[in-house]
Structures are given as structure tokens and as C-alpha cells.
Design a protein around this nucleic acid. Sequence first.
RNA 1: GCGGCCGUGGCGGAAUGGUAGACGCGCAAGACUAAGGAUCUUGUGGGAGUAAUCCUGUGGAGGUUCAAGUCCUCUCGGCCGCACCA
Length: 691
Amino acid sequence: MTERYNIKETEIKWRKAWADADAFSVTENTDKPKYYVLEMFPYPSGRIHVGHVRNYTLGDVVARYKTAQGFNVMHPMGWDAFGLPAENAAIERGAHPNKWTHENIDAMKVQLKSMGLSIDWSREFATCDPEYYAHEQRMFIKFLEKGIAYRKEAIVNWDPVDNTVLANEQVIDGCGWRTGAPVERRKLNQWSLKITDYAEELLSCLDNLDRWPEKVRLMQSNWIGKSVGLQFKWNVVGRDGQIDVYTTRPDTLFGASFIALAPDHPMSAELAKGKEGFDAFIKQCQAAGTSEAAIEKAEKIGFDTALKATHPILGREVPIYIANFILMDYGTGAVFGVPAHDQRDCDFANKYGLPILPVVLPESGIEITSEAYTGEGKLANSQFLDGLSVEDAKAEIIKRCEESDTGFGTTQYRLRDWGISRQRYWGCPIPIIYCDDCGAVPVPDEQLPVTLPEDVTFDKPGNPLVHHATWKNCDCPKCGKAAQRETDTFDTFFESSWYQFRYCDSQNENLPTDKDKAAYWMPKDGGVDQYIGGVEHAVLHLLYARFFTKAMRDCGFVVSDEPFSGLFTQGMVTHETFKDENGKWIFPTDAIKNEAGEWVHAETGAPVTIGASIKMSKSKKNVIDPEEILETYGADAARLFILSDSPPERDLEWTESGIEGAWRFVNKAFGAITSMNLHQGDENACGDNAK
RNA sequence: GCGGCCGUGGCGGAAUGGUAGACGCGCAAGACUAAGGAUCUUGUGGGAGUAAUCCUGUGGAGGUUCAAGUCCUCUCGGCCGCACCA
């Protein structure tokens, strides 16, 4: 048989050939159709992981395929370089975040290159460099002028472990998305972006994203959470106050049998003032957890204020309760309860002995006791609504309320504005100066960028910028008086929200990107042609980037409506897990089979148990190092295994036998080609000849 | 609870409504070898048969069709997302 395929020699040869030929750099070329392939850029943690290998292999296949088809392909790479791990490294090891980050970038770039990717490295950037974040500061100031950015005192989600604020999107089950620590509620002055102004466009444009997974579109749609309904007032008997309620079922108004307020509704404390048991009730509400399980089990409980409200049409009086299942931050924080047609209201009514009044009946008729009827039907016991369908009744009652000026049809969104202030050092400084006389003053353009000071220490808890007097103290740009810089930095999702535009013109010193160049790669009706990454960003990065694109468009920076016209979400890479006899996770390399075929620890010989194949993670130790794989089997075998073992959208189970099989396959192919003497006298017949 | 995705050999998984199981792993036999946990060749869904071949088979039950893994209805199982959202 012939010689074996020589990985090192071949890969080095072709990498050099590509570099010498500058094979993957592109410029705008209107003679060819363009194609923009992008994979979610990596955080420079220090080493690439298998997930990166899968992600960038998939993108590389698309890039090379489209190149072969004659497209002018842009396939860039950069670094999502701000973030907490750099600060943690500084605290733990005394490494400066900037040095640590750039060393990691250098190391990972070597690793990525060993994968044989067709990347245009001339467009590379790191988001932690002032050349990048300067443009963010300019855009932020433009957003301020346009009213897209604003400052408000708000109750925020505080992560007590990372000592910083989290966006709503970063809170999962009431816990921080990174730390898993229960979030606390704090009142802070925060910079926010008006993503809610774009709620309708973000929702309606989802319909045009036909090359996005249905799943992601649905998740975004649910996150935006649009509902259409009626908002109107109920009078409180014997008092001046009125209660504003919002409902998506105005058709059931005639079935209302109580009013319920959120415990933290401003009127709750007022109405319950001096009433026995109210404080205890509030405590009881707060004691209940916010986790899924706790909510699932939580009983509907209410506090009877002993006050009544008047039904706006019937004039009948219904009791006013304060109830634990009413949320202050949705709608108006107050509802009218219709036990017959809402399960929560039904549970509540049964508990407190309130009447159940059916007003929507199906053809067959029903009796409602403990189960609310939420289906279609005809209105009944509802005066002028009788006989109408649910849809028609909704429209009719909204019309009547608007005519009599007692209420109005309105649209609610679940989406909240994006709080972007973070109390961290390793992020983009927010370009604001606080002056006692002038208030919050944007840093003037000629003073931009506001760069991070290098000489910081991490010996005190919290943000080192707060303790850095020479950086923090400055003069007010307006009046010249002594003033202080904003010490908060942007949420790191800020950087990844617009980087797709920066690749179009990564060296531009004056603008985030050149509008014309960006319009070539990302025209109005289509952005990145194929974007590839993990599904975990479905409502974080992918929603922020869509919003940012529209905000940039409205500020005149770009023409695109949407950043990514095609999205592909790859599956995770999994691996078997191993535990020693004490139940502690061990690395797969430490588990071997002995002569008897039993799994034992490589060093101690003690028995080892094999667990399920789950997502690779350092804590479970079921990780493999891509560098070792690339060294041993080469880029072709690694890429072949990744592409052939499981469909790209599904989870990939990494196995040693799988990668060996791919390696044998590569050799068979090599043997077949060499035995046919195809490469004799023609070096280019073997290997990848992309250009 | 609501919404979505997926069920095919021992395993990962192929298959524009048209020969089910490509390719890989594993397994078996053979070759080479001092040796094989390297490499190569051949075979490999299940059942019957020396064999040609036949029967059967895509979670389960129905249906549409000349033809169903694929389309429709119901059902069972697994995974994911959201969630007291009025």
C-alpha cells in the first residue's frame, strides 16, 4: 500500500500557499454576487474548544462552497474581547485584563489557523481596543440625541456574585445567567436603550426572516410578547381613587366578579392602610420563590381590602383584593377577575367564595365549577354583547368604551427596555460626565474615545474605575467646573450587537463602518447571508443585534433593516462522562479499560463509572482539547468527523472511535488518489485548491 | 400548563412521495505481521434457506395514494423553550 497521508507537511504547505496568495481576502466587487458568511465570534478565553471547531468548520464549508459557485465571499473573524473572565483572571492571578486578553487572542488565532479556515484575517479586530469601542461611544451619543438612549432610576436585577446589574434577558429562573446566584432587586440610576420603541418592528420583521429557524423566531416572538386588549378604569366605592385595569379578554367584562391588584401596586398599600394582616400578607408574597417550581406550586392567595369597585357598565359592586399572582410590571398591575373564563381567577374565586358568572358559552353549553372555559363560543348574560363571537365582542366593547371615553384599546408588550450599565472595569466606558450644575453631559466628540485607564488595581471589591481618581475626576465639558466621569461600562452585548457591520470596513477611523461598503455586503433587504452559532443566544444577542441594526439605520449609519438574513443554529457537542468511585468527575483520558474489559482509572486502577453523553463542560470534565485532535489526526479528519457524524443542527456526540474512523477515511481517500497517480507532476491536483 | 422539535439496525445517522438503512462506528471472517488494540479486504436490520431467493421491517393505531420513514388524524415516548403576562 502507499504512504500515509502526511498531515503536518500538507497542512503547513497549503496554509502557506493560501497566505502567500492572500487567498481569502476580498473587496467589494459589483461584478460578482456577494455572499457574507459569519460565525458568532469567539470570546478569547485562551484556547478554542470543540464547539468553536464545529461552528467554524460549518461556516468554512459554506464559505468555500459559495466561493466555488462564483460568489464574492466575505468570511471574517474577530474577538468578542470584553467580559468578566478577564477581570477574574486579574483578581485571581494579577494579570492585567488587556494583556491577558491579547495573549489569549494570539494563542487562539494560531489554533484557528491550524483548522485550515478560509478567513479574511485582514478584517480582524478585537472589541476591547479603542479603535473599536470609540465608535460605540459615538453611536451611544447619537442614540442619546435621538432619544434611543436615556437614563432613569429603576429597580434592577442585581447579581450579588458578579456585583453588577443584569438585563431582564440575562435573568433565568430568577438567577443570574452566568453565576446562577439569585438576583436581588436594587434601585439604581441606569442607562437604557429604548428597545421597546422597536417592539412592533422587531416582531413584524420576524415574518420576513424565512431563513431563520422557526424555533428562534418563536422564542423572540414570545419574548416580545405582544398582546392587544382594553385598558379602562373602575371607580372605588366611597373614595376618589380609580383603578386602571388592562385585559386581553374585554369580551368577558360582564362576568367580572372581583378586582385584583399586584402586591407592589402603588394603590395596594394605600387601600390596605391600617388593615390587619396586610403586612403579614405582603411578607407571605415575598417569601414565595421566583423559581419555576415555586411558581408552579404557589397557591393563589389574596388579601381582601374590604373595599368595593363599581362595574363600569352594570354598576354592580365587586370586592377589591390584593393578590399574589398579579404582576406589577405587566399591563397596569391590576385586573378584573372573571372566574368562569380564566383558570387563575377560577382558583381564586373558589378559594374566597366569589361568584362564577359564565358569559361565553359553547354550542353544547357548559357548567363551570373548578375548570375555567377558555374556548370559543357565543356571548351570553352580557346585554348588548349577547350572541356575538368572542372576537366580535372584543371589538364591540372596545368601541363602546372609546365612544363613552371610559377606556381605550391598547397594545402591550412583555419586552422591557435594555439596561446597558454595568458596574465593571473590562467594558466600554460610557462617555458621560456628571456635573453638579449641568447634569449628565455627553463627552464631546473631540475628546472621544474615552479610553480605559491601564493603571488599575483589583485589590478592592467592585469596579476599579470608581477608585481611580485621576481618570474619574475631570472638567465639565460645558461649564468647565470640576466633574466626574461615569464609571459604569456598557453591557458586553453592546459590542456583539454591531460587529457584523464593522467587518465591512474594520479599519475605518471616523465611522463605525463605511455606509457604501456596508451596503454592498449588507444591503437594505438583506444582511449577513449566513450566520451560524449556538441557539443559546436566541433572545439575547440575536434580539439585541436586530434592534441595534434598526437603531443604527435610523441614525443614518447603515441601510440594513435586519443584520442576519440567514441564521443557522448548530447543536452542542457532547461527550461521555466519567466518575471515579467517590463520585467525582474525571477526565475521559483518565478512564481506560483493563484486561477484563472493565472501565478503571488509568492511574489508580480503581473502578470508574460511565455516565450519559452530555454537553462538554469543564465542570463535568468531559472535554477534549481540539489542539490535540488537530495534532494527531489533522484538520481534514477533524472536520470530516464533525460534518459526517451528526446533522449540524443536532447534538454531536464526540467519540474517539468516530474521529479515528474519519482519519481512516481520509487515508483511504488519499490512498485512492495517490494510487491513481493523479498528483504526479501536478502538485495542485491534491489538497485544497480554493482559488 | 402553553408552544416547538424529534422517534429508522447494536450505536451516530442516510433516504426531491418512488429499490429503506448511504457513510462512519461496532461486530464477524480473512490477509499482512514476531506481535496487533496498527493497516487492508469482505460481510453485517430481523427471520427462513446450502443457495438463487422469499417473508418481514422506520415508536403504536388508523387514513390518503398506483406507491408512505416521508402527507393527514389520533396515541405513546424523549428533548428543548417559555411561563401566575391578565
